[in-house]
Write a protein that binds this DNA or RNA. Structure first.
Length: 497
RNA sequence: GGCGCUAUCGUCUAGGGGUUAGGACGUGAGAUUCUCAAUCUUAAAACCCGGGUUCGAUUCCCGGUAGCGCUACCA
């Protein structure tokens, strides 16, 4: 059992393609087959070498590995199309000799005209077979005379049917499949022919790909048959759509693997989510599958044929799940560059790294994806007392008499405290203030929270206080005030107002 | 235009000739919390339409509609 993922290196790997790669990989891994990476760089204008490297990096990040590919070779090289050369021409000449293909001398302008005519008459646009009946000797003579020609395959005069694992039997009338060009007059082979040759030479047994290739399949089947090669099994995966039910694309925001990685989506979360797009286990009740479990449970025959809308919310739900499951060190390592960027730091000291790890550990449970961390940590990282005092939503709380009492009491008690302040100690102070003033609950906590963070909501003080104290001891591009400093500054501004 | 594919809660899906049509995300409500998040409990929410077949169709068949794809000397 051999399957392949054959992307063209024309940019970042998109989720649609990644899902195709994933299904191929899952199928291979679970059947004990071979997963092959082949670079389809026929379109040299759009292909770039750097994209090829990025492509491999991206799918490795997702957690896929391949057994044969351009980087590691294998028994059926080359694994990069542009390295292939002559083969396509040789097989095409063989087809001509066997009477299964023929040179076509029609000019492109002529073909274009015919197509326009057919379109205007609302007729199917198929090649009328003008050159199909040119006697072979005459064709040979004209070619030798240097007349420019393309090579066309003869499509048999019978319906073409093939089996698809996700859709069952599919049949196309030969009346709608025209004799296709396999070699351009420039001598360059055409995609639909190239894939067949490549897949056959690599002994691919199962072609798992996007359903945009479904209508191409009869042509390819005709090619396999003409070349006397075994027709592989097909599995056409449905399209992934955006919320507007149009094909998912960059228009819909972050849709490439690189995007997801930058956002701080864990690869196993994305893998799990993509697997659920078109596949469900028997019973359909389980949703959470680690990569290993997916390999065990995945079943190609249970893949649904209908298109699926990509739901970021559900992906985030899985991401939250996997973030919580992950070792804190791993999450901290992934979050560090994101936080460093927000702090405008490049080279962290080990103290800063430790602090960032603490921030991450304290806040990560409330985040969909890691890039939300800086925003979530803003109450620690920044301190804008003037803005906090001026903010309309804070007026009511700050104006309350109880708030004035609480803030004055807390500030006074903090004055007497040694630095650094322990979280437990801060809590004890609040407790004392509560006892002495009789103010408790929201009336106690809210003004203090606003004084420290400028906001009415955020992490609990037990988490917040140590992060502020730790940050205050570090040398940063923009310093983080300690708890006492914050309260003192806040009070000063509040009183002078 | 032709051809092909698809159609169950808003979304991903399970199911299948007779079911209270199941689960998950999201949403609403409640509990908890100083607040947000998390968590727990709970609620609302679906078989595209029309014909057949059948005692009975959401399920099988046909047609319609809609969405998507292919229709190239693009990949």
């Amino acid at each position: 059992m051999r399957v392949r993922f054959a992307p063209s290196p024309t940019g970042q790997v998109h989720v649609g393609n990644a899902r195709t790669a994933l299904f191929n990989w899952l199928f291979a891994r679970q059947q004990g087959g071979t997963f092959i990476l082949r670079i389809e760089d026929t379109d040299l204008e759009r292909s770039e070498a750097r994209y090829e490297a990025q492509l491999m990096e991206d799918i490795q990040w997702l957690g896929l590995d391949w057994d044969e590919g351009p980087d590691k070779g294998g028994p059926y090289p080359p694994y990069r199309q542009s390295d292939k050369g002559q083969v396509y021409l040789d097989h095409a000449e063989r087809l001509i000799r066997e009477g299964k293909a023929y040179p076509c001398f029609c000019s492109q302008q002529e073909l274009e005209r015919q197509r326009e005519e057919a379109q205007a008459a609302q007729q199917p646009q198929i090649y009328p077979g003008t050159c199909r009946n040119i006697p072979p000797e005459e064709a040979v003579r004209r070619r030798q005379a240097g007349e420019s020609c393309a090579i066309r395959l003869k499509i048999p005069e019978r319906p073409i049917r093939f089996h698809d694992i996700v859709r069952g039997w599919v049949e196309f009338s030969n009346e709608v499949v025209s004799d296709l060009i396999i070699i351009r007059s420039s001598g360059v082979a055409v995609y639909n022919y190239v894939v067949v040759v490549d897949d056959a030479e690599m002994k691919i047994t199962h072609v798992i790909r996007g359903d945009d290739h479904l209508s191409n399949t009869p042509k390819q089947v005709a090619l396999y048959e003409a070349l006397d090669w075994p027709v592989p099994e097909f599995a056409h995966l449905s399209t992934i759509l955006g919320p507007d039910r149009e094909r998912l694309s960059k228009r819909h925001g972050a849709t490439s693997l690189a995007n997801f990685r930058e956002m701080g989506v864990l690869p196993e979360a994305l893998m799990n989510y993509m697997a659920l797009l078109g596949w469900a286990p028997t019973g359909g009740e389980r949703e959470v599958f680690s990569p290993t479990e997916l390999v065990q449970e995945f079943d190609l025959t249970r893949v649904t044929p209908s298109p699926a809308v990509f739901d970021f919310e559900k992906l985030y739900w899985l991401n939250r799940h996997y973030i919580k499951e992950s070792a804190p060190e791993r999450v901290a390592a992934l979050a560090e560059p994101i936080l460093l960027r927000a702090l405008e730091l490049s080279e962290p000291t080990s103290e800063i790294s430790a602090w960032l790890a603490h921030i991450t550990a304290a806040l990560v449970h409330s985040v969909n994806k890691l890039d939300e961390l800086p925003e979530r940590a803003a109450s620690v990282l920044h301190f804008y007392p003037v803005a906090a005092i001026g903010a309309t939503e804070n007026q009511e709380i700050l104006a309350a008499e109880t708030s004035q009492t609480v803030l004055a009491a807390v500030t006074a008690k903090l004055e007497a405290e040694a630095e650094p302040l322990e979280a437990a100690h801060f809590k004890a102070i609040l407790k004392e203030v509560q006892k002495e003033t009789g103010i408790k609950g929201p009336a106690l906590f809210h003004p203090v929270r606003i004084a420290l963070t400028g906001q009415q909501s955020g992490p609990e003080f037990d988490r917040l206080v140590p992060l502020m104290e730790e940050g205050a001891r570090l040398t940063l591009s923009k310093s983080v005030p300690a708890v006492r400093e914050r309260l003192a500054a806040f009070m000063t501004i509040l009183q002078t107002r």
